[in-house]
Each structure stands twice: as C-alpha cells, then as structure tokens.
Simulated scan of single mutants.
Amino acid sequence: MKILTINGSERSRGSTWLAVQAIVERARARGCETREVDLAEQRVTRCDCGRCNSRTDPCPVDDDVGTIVAAMVEADAVFLAAPVHGFGLSSLMQTFVERAGVGHLRFERPLTNTIGAAVVIGRRYGHLDVHAQLLHNLLLNRFIVVGSGFPVTIHSGGEQGVLSDTEGMEALHRTVDRIIDIGNALAESGTRLPRPSEVERRVGRTS
C-alpha cells in the first residue's frame, strides 16, 4: 500500500513534520510504502489568471503543484497535515488546496475513491475549524474518508511538543491503522470501486 503525506506547514521541520513522522513510522512498520511532500520545500505559487473557475484545461502556472497532484493520484491513501495559523488553515496549505483543486482536480476528479484523512496541529485553539476545512476538501474530491472515531487534532504544547498530547497521537495512530486495514481489505477482496469517470456520469458532470 502506498501512503502519501502532505505537510502544509511553512516550517518543514516543525510540529507538523513530527506528526507526519509518526504517520510514516507507523505505516512503514506495517509494510507500507511511504512518500513525504513538504510544501515548504516545493514551489507552490498563487495563481492570478482570473480564469480558474472558467478554464477547461489544467492550470498553466509553472510550479510543483501538478507534480504533487500526480503523486496524490498514484497513492492509495493521502494524509493532509497542516498547522493552525491565526485560528485558520496555514496559508501555504490553503494555497495548495486551492491551486490543486481548481487548477488540476476539478476536471476529472482523479482522486475519487482514494483513501484520505486530515491531521491538524496547533497549540490550543482552532483545531476543529481547520480540520473541518480539510475534511470538506477531501469530501469535495471524493476521497474515502477514514478516521479513528475522533478527528486527529494534536496539541503542540508541553515539554515534548506533539508527543505530549498522548490522546491526539493515539487518534493519529489509530487512524493510520484503520486506513491500512481498509486499504488492505479492499486490495485482498479484489473489489473494484467505481472509476472517477463513472462517478462523474452519475452526478451529471459528463455525458
């Protein structure tokens, strides 16, 4: 199983990165192939073409968003991990989800039936608001959203940072395990999920 993590923090080695490392370690221990994308180390440029909602072809901006989207399509499961900044989603992750969604994903919804989860890290406030925004983005792109029963919201305060939030880290570990369990079960059963084009026809988006 291929698991992709996308770190939406402007600090590529901060608290969000530590949470991502916990995902990666858990997944690798269970035999998964992992890939990490730190948006802070990629070129994610704001688009100002003014035609994002009307254009019929992918966004022409020359940056790394298209390459990251291709990695998402290749993965079996994607974790969107981001910090709370100013009570909201980090500006870097916000730019990415806007550019990826409007510039690349909305044409064919290629992430349909990919497994996904949201992970939010912050000191004290705004976690659930940011988690809801990422969750809505996953739903918009027709991910199969998997959780542990609780949203993965991790507090970064305490002497050990995110590791001090044992409850939040437990929710993270359980979510990773559930994603792997479900992904493996689907693969072993040979179940064929509807293709993106088939789902598009059902909602009247294509002929």
Rank of each mutant, 00 (worst) to 15 (best):
residue 103 G to Y: 09
residue 85 H to M: 10
residue 97 V to P: 02
residue 101 G to P: 04
residue 55 R to A: 14
residue 83 P to R: 15
residue 30 R to N: 06
residue 79 F to H: 11
residue 33 E to A: 10
residue 31 G to I: 06
residue 89 L to M: 15
residue 56 T to L: 11
residue 31 G to E: 04
residue 88 G to M: 15
residue 21 Q to H: 02
residue 72 M to E: 03
residue 73 V to P: 01
residue 37 V to E: 00
residue 17 W to E: 04
residue 82 A to C: 15
residue 58 P to N: 08
residue 28 R to D: 00
residue 36 E to K: 06
residue 79 F to E: 08
residue 80 L to R: 05
residue 82 A to G: 15
residue 29 A to P: 00
residue 21 Q to K: 07
residue 51 R to Q: 13
residue 51 R to I: 15
residue 51 R to Y: 09
residue 57 D to Y: 05
residue 46 R to I: 14
residue 85 H to E: 08
residue 82 A to I: 13
residue 72 M to Q: 08
residue 25 E to M: 04
residue 71 A to F: 07
residue 85 H to P: 02
residue 61 V to M: 14
residue 71 A to L: 13
residue 63 D to A: 13
residue 70 A to H: 04
residue 88 G to K: 14
residue 15 S to W: 00
residue 88 G to F: 14
residue 39 L to Y: 01
residue 42 Q to W: 03
residue 50 G to S: 14
residue 20 V to R: 00
residue 77 A to H: 03
residue 85 H to D: 10
residue 38 D to S: 10
residue 47 C to I: 12
residue 27 A to L: 01
residue 78 V to R: 04
residue 95 T to M: 12
residue 18 L to R: 10
residue 35 R to N: 03
residue 91 S to Q: 10
residue 101 G to D: 06
residue 84 V to N: 03
residue 79 F to G: 04
residue 76 D to K: 10
residue 27 A to R: 01
residue 14 G to T: 02
residue 109 R to E: 11
residue 93 M to N: 07
residue 22 A to W: 01
residue 28 R to N: 02
residue 75 A to L: 06
residue 35 R to P: 00
residue 31 G to Q: 07
residue 105 L to H: 11
residue 70 A to Y: 05
residue 14 G to R: 04
residue 37 V to R: 04
residue 16 T to A: 01
residue 94 Q to R: 14
residue 58 P to H: 06
residue 49 C to H: 14
residue 14 G to A: 01
residue 32 C to Y: 01
residue 65 V to M: 05
residue 78 V to W: 02
residue 80 L to Q: 10
residue 23 I to M: 00
residue 82 A to S: 15
residue 27 A to W: 01
residue 45 T to K: 15
residue 99 R to C: 10
residue 15 S to I: 00
residue 97 V to F: 04
residue 33 E to W: 03
residue 38 D to W: 01
residue 50 G to F: 09
residue 109 R to S: 11
residue 51 R to N: 14
residue 52 C to L: 13
residue 106 R to L: 12
residue 45 T to Y: 05
residue 77 A to W: 02
residue 15 S to A: 06
residue 80 L to N: 05
residue 104 H to E: 11
residue 54 S to V: 15
residue 92 L to W: 07
residue 58 P to Y: 04
residue 85 H to W: 13
residue 41 E to S: 04
residue 77 A to T: 06
residue 51 R to L: 12
residue 69 V to L: 05
residue 76 D to H: 13
residue 97 V to W: 03
residue 69 V to M: 03
residue 80 L to Y: 11
residue 87 F to Y: 15
residue 107 F to Q: 11
residue 60 P to G: 09
residue 80 L to A: 09
residue 18 L to C: 04
residue 33 E to Q: 10
residue 56 T to R: 12
residue 62 D to N: 14
residue 52 C to S: 13
residue 32 C to R: 01
residue 103 G to R: 01
residue 55 R to L: 10
residue 19 A to C: 06
